[in-house]
Design a protein around this nucleic acid. Structure first.
Lengths: 341, 341
DNA sequence: CGGTGTTAGGTTATGGTTAACATATTCAGG
DNA sequence: CCTGAATATGTTAACCATAACCTAACACCG
């Protein structure tokens, strides 16, 4: 790769003159400019951003650290991040943590070394450590999707409590009284928030804590499958299942299919997180849909505000609304199943 | 962010000594090492990878340039790339080109400036320019998913010809004689390769060029929808539709649903590219499935070989087999539709 | 014609790290 | 006790680009 010095030599000028041509700064003679531009062309020179970054202490690079890019929800978040970053001439590094705090920490260390200008983090775990690590090194962070307790940090997420409330309410309105929520790990805020919204709706409908059926597992298909099997074994059997995310929903639907339970006739199923419209012919599942793209976009936008010193001191907690989309997977419970309110 | 000089001062030694501790090189006294390690700890120092990269001319960073991370196929490719890169302590920058050669070129220029060690490219267009650009700057490239004619470059892709042959053969074996292929842009090799495999199967089955129904559009859902509508309007109507990729397949299935055409009873549908198993409860579509993860992995592996100087001179053209997965969307044509072979 | 401002370009130092070289201390062996 | 090897640490220069400073030629004014 040619350096600025190579260009300078070929054009018969100093490196500084080339730099001036590149950055359109200072005075440059017309003929000199031409000579330099020709030399740049001939050598296929591109300036070395490392050297620049070393001086200016900015790399025009962000990092997106998430649990698994393979989850369509995060794919969409990632796309939102990339589009927003690209619009400001930033590039994005991406890192999959697979929900492992170790892997997450290793990545953050590498990212700090690479001097990324900022980090968008979907935390693997509800620990303040990753945030503190970045803060100690002066690297701005915005947390996406999940809350982290006990630490001041900008956050952009979906209103899980209200979303869960709405969809539970929808089931209650249909007449369901035995609704099980099959959700992710208790260490992740989305999980606990969704349970909170679920409970709130139950209580408001005159049900008691004892009527809540809360089953925690992981945000995976296999976990959804197992949780659904366990839910089917309960006496009395729930009339509706609320999946904590899209992976769990798929697992639940497969378990019901394998058990020969028809949806929604014999069992209503709803889910947090929609399935990507690009892979589904006929959307069937009643869901609360998260504004994934907007979360990526808004989070990145906030990061730019911080980088520009435009951010207020108070940490942002931007909570975007989820959208209830009623489809065919939820219906009234069969009469014989119905409780007497 | 603390520098090595800050650490040196705090430990009362020179920067070089700190460097030696960091890299475990040369001789270090026990007590000195302790002092330095304490200083590193206290300051939360991490070495500046920019400065290192400037010296060593390697950034431990790869770039993945693809058309759209939102396509589940590319998401999986990306995951393969990231896992392989991560295993070697490399990070990955990702860039969506949206099939725009302009955007692609802009990205490549930025990546060259940022001194990435190598690029994994899903080309937006069948032009050698991006390859030549990178080669001129000494940046290794591996092309993924698509071929680029008229240029020597390492390539890792699916055997589109054979995959298309197999699935067309499958339809022919079921008795179909009027099979339309609805595919992507003619400028993209996957598209032309799939058409080639399709034709080959037809000819082998004793059909003629005239029996081929080839409709080109874009690799999008809306294009699939429109192509299917046009295919339905043909006289005689095809008895089977072969979608060129997963997006087209979704569009086709929606068009058939809207037209009230039942699959597979009234129309068989097959597709190149599977839908992600993580978003489908009951896989229904007969497909040739591409080894997306392996493509990412193998491409990255090849890139590492090149970086290590371990690559043979001859450009690699690694063609991975596609897998025919027969499901319910393909069946025998209805009798009244059947041609007399 | 001297002074001043404009134009055009060069020189030096800096950013953080480390290879190469230089210097200083310790210790074993003769 | 001296010599030379082994050990321990420091100094300089280089990677590449550029801000800050400096020099020089020229035009224009009074």
């Amino acid at each position: 790769m040619a350096t600025i010095e190579d260009v300078a030599k070929r054009a018969g000028v100093s490196a500084m003159t080339v730099s001036r041509v590149l950055n359109n700064s200072g005075y440059i003679g017309v003929k000199t400019r031409e000579k330099v531009e020709r030399a740049i062309e001939e050598l296929g020179y591109v300036p070395n951003a490392l050297a620049r970054s070393l001086r200016f202490k900015t790399t025009h690079t962000l990092a997106l650290v998430l649990t698994d890019i393979t989850n369509s929800y995060f794919t969409t978040v990632a796309r939102g991040v990339e589009d927003m970053a690209n619009a400001r001439d930033f590039t994005v590094m991406f890192c999959n943590t697979d929900e492992s705090p170790d892997k997450e920490m290793k990545y953050l260390s590498v990212l700090a070394q690479k001097q990324v200008d900022g980090v968008l983090l979907v935390p693997a775990f509800s620990s303040p450590d990753p945030i503190l690590f970045l803060k100690a090194r002066g690297i701005p962070v915005v947390v996406l999707d999940r809350r982290i307790p006990d630490v001041e940090v900008d956050t952009v997420r979906t209103d899980s409590v209200r979303g869960a409330y709405q969809i539970t309410r929808h089931l209650l309105d249909l007449g369901h009284r035995r609704i099980a929520i099959l959700t992710g790990p208790v260490e992740i805020s989305t999980s606990t928030d969704r349970v909170a919204g679920y409970k709130q709706a139950l209580l408001e409908a005159g049900l008691s804590e004892a009527d809540a059926v809360i089953m925690g597992g992981a945000y995976t298909i296999s976990s959804g499958y197992q949780l659904a099997q366990r839910a089917l074994a309960l006496k009395p059997t729930p009339t509706a299942l609320f999946a904590g995310n899209n992976f769990i929903a798929i697992g639940v639907l497969r378990a019901l299919r394998d058990a020969g339970v028809r949806v929604p006739d014999e069992m209503s199923v709803v889910s947090f997180d929609d399935l990507p419209s690009t892979t589904v012919v006929d959307p069937f599942l009643t869901v609360v849909s998260q504004p994934a793209y907007a979360i990526g976009e808004q989070g990145t936008s906030r990061l730019f505000d911080v980088l520009a010193g435009r951010a207020q001191t108070a940490p942002l907690d931007l909570v975007l609304p989820a959208e209830l989309i009623v489809r065919q997977s939820s219906g009234a419970p069969r009469r014989k199943d119905q409780d007497m309110g």
